[in-house]
């Protein structure tokens, strides 16, 4: 379960945290040897193979690097279509593959500010919402 809302089920444990005030963060890994960040956190560093990786919450906002929308449900996916998909660049000098909350590609522009949010995917067998992370455009 994600920490903020006990009724919700995270699509996978360890991807993100939700604080009581609703703020959320992706949980990345930072390598003590080479200093590189990665996401999701893995036991070994994908850059230098060290196993001195610590969990770090990544910045909540970043900029849009690339995006598209998926118009037909891919195998194993039970959520709604179309949905946005793309890459967001975070201040930790890391680019992350993510859902994009805006499913119409023409409404997005490169470099715009994006904020992390937790979004519902579908319901599990017990009727609880299964949730995942997504980045949505920040209204300016």
């Amino acid at each position: 379960m994600s920490e903020g809302s006990p009724a919700d089920v995270a699509v996978r444990e360890g991807l993100f945290t939700v604080a009581a005030d609703g703020s959320c963060h992706l949980l990345g890994g930072r390598c003590a040897r080479c200093g590189e960040h990665h996401f999701p956190r893995t036991a070994t560093c994908p850059y230098c193979s060290a196993d001195e990786v610590t969990e770090v919450p990544l910045s909540e906002t970043g900029t849009l690097f690339a995006w598209t929308a998926v118009t037909a449900p891919p195998p194993g996916y039970r959520g709604a279509v179309p949905f946005g998909f793309g890459v967001v660049e975070l201040p930790e000098r890391i680019r992350v593959i993510t859902r994009i909350s805006e499913p119409e590609p023409s409404r997005l522009r490169r470099g715009q500010t994006m904020r992390l949010e937790i979004v519902p995917l579908h319901e599990d067998e017990d009727g609880r919402p299964v949730v995942t992370y997504s980045f949505g455009p920040v209204e300016t």
Binding site: V11, R12, A66, W67, T68, V70, P74, P75, G76, Y77, R78, G79, F83, F85, G86, V87, I97, T98, R99, L121, V130, T132
Partner: peptide, 23 residues
């Protein structure tokens, strides 16, 4: 792709090619 990636919609191979085409 691990099952959670399929479930989250992050395992559609054409979407990765679309990002590369866009770039």
């Amino acid at each position: 792709f691990e099952p959670w990636r399929e479930e989250a919609g992050l395992a559609a191979t054409p979407s990765y090619f679309a990002l590369r085409a866009q770039r």
